[in-house]
């Protein structure tokens, strides 16, 4: 187990270097000059342009910029934005908001998704199961922006239960509506995965044995059936957590949540390489950690899986 974790941690290093290199390279290859764009349609003094480029290190070849960037990164320096703010400040402002939103959506999709999937699987072919299939199909086929606007119109503009946009991005209560929208698609997947898995395992030998032994139904379902059916769901949830942390540009835009998606959108619009790279670095770390946790959870869920 310990050796497995160490090996996985070591594997993260090349992955981390590779992804940061790729994103740095791609941002650099974007057409147009972010420094020149600061003036819009107006003319600029070339000397002024040159001195700003020099100040931001943009006059050096890209590989040199990459090495400098990585050097600073390992000292905890993420660079500055075009507007002369520390990128680290921008990240530490946006990340807590997105963590809240993502966890809320995550909890929502686990609790509702697994429960609905479990009951649908146990009542296979009954009306609840069919209802679940229709509902999840609906959620999967409606694009997130549409769902967002529907929720906004119904709950905020008509019912007036909440304000149309989030007034304070750190307030959990106000993040519930965006989290519902954000988690709805994954909720449908989780419910479907759980249902299929339950239906498959309920016919398995070990379940028949457990029932034959005279175990209470609660224990058969809770300890044996559900636990064994969770493996594909956990795999999905692991990658999904990473995706949720990456911020939701559309959902955050609709509800004016000041999270990672919002900050990234702004940075991409302004072609701010340092900000984009900074966020990606953090997100890569989150992704790697999430996938490691998922792998470790396999062993917890299924005793047959062992890591040497």
């Amino acid at each position: 187990m310990g050796r497995f974790v160490i090996r996985r941690l070591l594997q993260m290093i090349p992955v981390f270097l590779g992804t940061t290199f790729l994103i740095f390279f791609m941002v650099h290859m974007l057409p147009g000059d972010p420094v020149r764009a600061m003036w819009g349609d107006k003319a600029v003094d070339p000397a002024q342009l040159a001195s700003i480029r020099h100040n931001l290190g943009l006059d050096k070849p890209w590989y040199e910029q990459y090495l400098t960037y990585m050097g600073h990164l390992f000292q905890g320096d993420f660079g500055t934005t075009m507007g002369n703010r520390k990128v680290l400040d921008v990240i530490t402002e946006a990340l807590p908001v997105t963590v809240r939103l993502a966890l809320l959506a995550f909890v929502f999709e686990i609790v509702l998704g697994v429960t609905i999937g479990l009951f649908a699987g146990l009542r296979r072919g009954k009306s609840f199961d069919k209802g679940t299939l229709i509902l999840t199909l609906l959620l999967i086929s409606i694009p997130v922006p549409v769902l967002g606007f529907i929720f906004q119109t119904v709950f905020a503009t008509q019912l007036r239960w909440v304000t149309p946009t989030v007034q304070d991005s750190m307030n959990i209560g106000q993040l519930v509506l965006p989290a519902l929208v954000l988690g709805s698609l994954s909720l449908a997947y989780v419910a479907r995965l759980t249902r299929t898995s339950i239906v498959e395992n309920i016919r398995a030998d070990y379940i028949r044995t457990a029932v034959a032994k005279g175990l209470p139904r609660r224990k058969v379902i809770g300890t044996h059936l559900l636990r064994n059916s969770m493996i594909p769901v956990v795999t999905f949830l692991g990658t999904d957590l990473g995706a949720l942390m990456g911020g939701a540009i559309v959902t955050e835009g609709i509800f004016n949540v000041k999270g990672v998606g919002n900050a990234l959108y702004h940075a991409i619009n302004l072609n701010e390489g340092a900000t984009i790279s900074g966020f990606v670095v953090v997100l890569v770390l989150v992704y790697l950690a999430a996938s490691l946790i998922v792998d470790l959870l396999y062993a917890v869920l299924d005793p047959r899986i062992r890591y040497a």
């Binding site: 905020a156 149309p164 835009g253 509800f255 919002n262």
Partner: peptide
């Protein structure tokens, strides 16, 4: 108040926020 999406601001305007 900073908005990145103009539609979000318009929804707030209509709701009186």
């Amino acid at each position: 108040k900073v908005y990145t999406d103009t539609n979000a601001a318009y929804a707030d305007l209509q709701a009186g926020n």
